[in-house]
Nucleic acid binder design. Structure first.
Length: 266
DNA sequence: AACTCACACAACCGCAGGTCG
DNA sequence: CCGACCTGCGGTTGTGTGAGT
């Protein structure tokens, strides 16, 4: 077919976004959020391809994003959904408001995979690792899978967490019926680990504590848009299936003068 | 102090699917 | 129906940082 590339590669900037570029993109999105992504860099004065702009906006600059590590409830929901949906990160992300597919994908690859392996669960199949085939065929309904995971996590759900889990458990209930024939994993064959052997990363629900012990770029941290930094009064509406958004730029402009943490507003 | 390694996350790439003329 | 165009998705790579030696 010889499809044209999404953009002219020549002269296009690649690599990490600068504060200046973020600023330009944000300013443009505030006032012109309905044109095609291909046109965005052109009109925003960016030497980036539309794809790159879209990714930057959706994964990082969008004002409704949650930042920081996933909470335990979110983490469990991701595991549940992954067991059902596989690597359909966008579908999984659609069940976690404020989280992006890229973020969940990264989190899965860096945190959850390890955790599941340590639990003796194959992150791909959600079945026990290195077990006999006999038990592989014994699968658990999703809710039981969740129970097993919770056992390992030793999670005593807080009341508040329960609230956030409501959608999760509702979803579990909702799809449970469809799981009668779906694979899960065999509880008996999960290698027995002691609870104290499970290492749980600090999963703070406090968005402001997004910096973890892991290495993070200070440059990006200073640019990080915490959801809390956006005024509650800001109206932010998804407009279509293609990531078009509408929100009040009046509020944004007020906010622009209010916040000092985010350089692009300066 | 300098170097290497591992990790976490941001960003890129290529393809698939949808839409429209 | 076909082809061009655009967006979305998932896999992969690149980059920066902290830990370890």
């Amino acid at each position: 077919m010889g499809r044209k590339p999404c953009c002219e590669k020549v002269g296009m900037k690649k690599g990490p976004w600068t504060a200046e570029e973020d600023k330009k993109l944000i300013n443009f999105m505030l006032t012109n959020c309905h044109c095609s992504w291909r046109a965005v860099p052109k009109f925003a004065g960016l030497l980036r391809c539309g794809k790159s702009c879209r990714l930057r906006w959706i994964n990082y600059l969008r004002p409704d994003l949650k930042r920081g590590l996933l909470s335990e409830s979110e983490e469990k929901l991701v595991i549940d959904l992954h067991a059902q949906l596989g690597n359909r990160w966008s579908k999984i992300a659609s069940h976690l408001p404020g989280r992006t597919d890229n973020e969940i994908k990264n989190y899965w690859n860096t945190h959850i995979k390890k955790k599941l392996r340590k639990m003796g669960v194959d992150p791909l199949t959600h079945k026990p690792i290195g077990t006999t085939s006999e038990c592989h065929d014994q699968v658990l309904p999703l809710q039981q899978t969740v129970d097993v995971a919770e056992g390992y996590w030793e999670v005593e759900e807080e009341e508040e967490e329960e609230k956030t889990m409501t959608s999760s458990t509702d979803y579990v209930t909702e799809i449970d019926a469809s799981l009668q024939t779906s694979p899960g994993f065999c509880i008996e064959e999960v290698p027995m680990m002691q609870p104290h052997e499970i290492v749980i990363p600090e999963a703070s629900t406090d968005d402001t504590s997004s910096s973890s012990s892991s290495g993070r770029s200070p440059k990006t941290d200073e640019l990080r848009l915490s959801a809390m930094e956006w005024p509650d009064s800001m109206h932010f509406f998804p407009m279509d299936d293609y990531g078009g958004w509408s929100f009040s730029s009046d509020h944004m402009l007020e906010h622009q003068t209010a916040t000092t943490e985010y350089d692009p507003w300066k």
